[in-house]
Design a protein around this nucleic acid. Sequence first.
DNA 1: TTGCTATATTGGCACTGTCAATATAAAGAT
DNA 2: ATCTTTATATTGACAGTGCCAATATAGCAA
Lengths: 207, 207
Amino acid sequence: MSTSKDKNASYHHGDLRNALIEAGLHQLTEAGIEGLSLRKIARDVGVSHNAPYMHFKDKEGLLAAMALEGFTLLYDATNGFASNEDMSWHAQFSAVAHAYVDFALTHPAHMQVMFRDYDSNIYPDTSQSAERAFDLLRDVMAEGQQAGLIEAGNSAKQAALIWSLLHGLAMIIAADKMPDSVIAEGESRQLIQLFIDQVYTGLKVAS
Amino acid sequence: MSTSKDKNASYHHGDLRNALIEAGLHQLTEAGIEGLSLRKIARDVGVSHNAPYMHFKDKEGLLAAMALEGFTLLYDATNGFASNEDMSWHAQFSAVAHAYVDFALTHPAHMQVMFRDYDSNIYPDTSQSAERAFDLLRDVMAEGQQAGLIEAGNSAKQAALIWSLLHGLAMIIAADKMPDSVIAEGESRQLIQLFIDQVYTGLKVAS
DNA sequence: TTGCTATATTGGCACTGTCAATATAAAGAT
DNA sequence: ATCTTTATATTGACAGTGCCAATATAGCAA
């Protein structure tokens, strides 16, 4: 596993902390965030209903740990396309954008857990894992600037714009709130491409 | 009240259905969606814990009704600026955009209830109230086209772009996931304006 | 008044998150 | 090796939850 410290492997359980996170993520995809139960997770792992409290302060603590894993998955899903020498900048940009929305739409429950309002003082690691995923997009924008393809400026704010666009699109689709006139069932790819093309070109009439 | 049928006013309770929705929305702002309890709502209204089941199939049913009210509130918050003869199109566009994000940031729990994935077959009224709020923004885009300010095209898709942008921005900020390098505490207004300016102009270098 | 139906209550069930007290296993010290 | 200490896990309990079934009650229609 890539999860930092595995000092307490082969204790009573072995590595209960990670087992709980994994079982939690599994239940998350099965039952969604509403159907997520601490006791059920414990049951799945085969420990008593109070064992999780050795490793997490409360349910929120486990959720924060699961969110961290979620951001790692998101990072992995997008990382392959950024800074890929074999792809043009436009291709990289487009691929990262599609990958983000794809991840969000195929892991809606993960997104719900990831985008809760955790206290970043209490869960700094979770915050950091989110920022790491953001930085990937910021780097893409910075490279676009260096290539002379997009306007020079604050690359973080440019990344924030794209992120907001993609995130909003995914959340609206996931909530089934996008009108049929805009998007047909499961036809998100063309819309994503249209959006990033339009943001690149601008909405205003050509002067 | 604006809520359609009040045929069953002055029954045992008077109008329990609406009272539950109102009490629910009140609790929503106080305790958030997680702290929302059907029994507690019933207690607040002064009825037994099972009275709500006369008016809603289950908790989800009440949430859907609350979501409908939420979309109405959102519509009211943005409606004043659209098609306002005293404002330039750019001013209207900007005002609607700010109003959307303002609403989302001041009513985060409402947004959570509104953007759940309701079955639109079971709750068509809720779906319709969402679409009504969307249509307002679509009309703004259509007027921008007619004024010759933005590129002619599918106004619904243009509205979807702006909506996604604003929605994503609000959700990311509400989840406290926007990096400090992008936005300082409570300074969302400038970022919104920057975003809509950049979408209007486009990211690509001026040719 | 007599039925009838919509509305509300009481009681119960399985489930939840969390606390307190207890047991147990591993690691460290002697 | 034995003892001590500490991290880890269990058992039991409590208030709270959503929801089902059975019962009561209020308003309406005949």
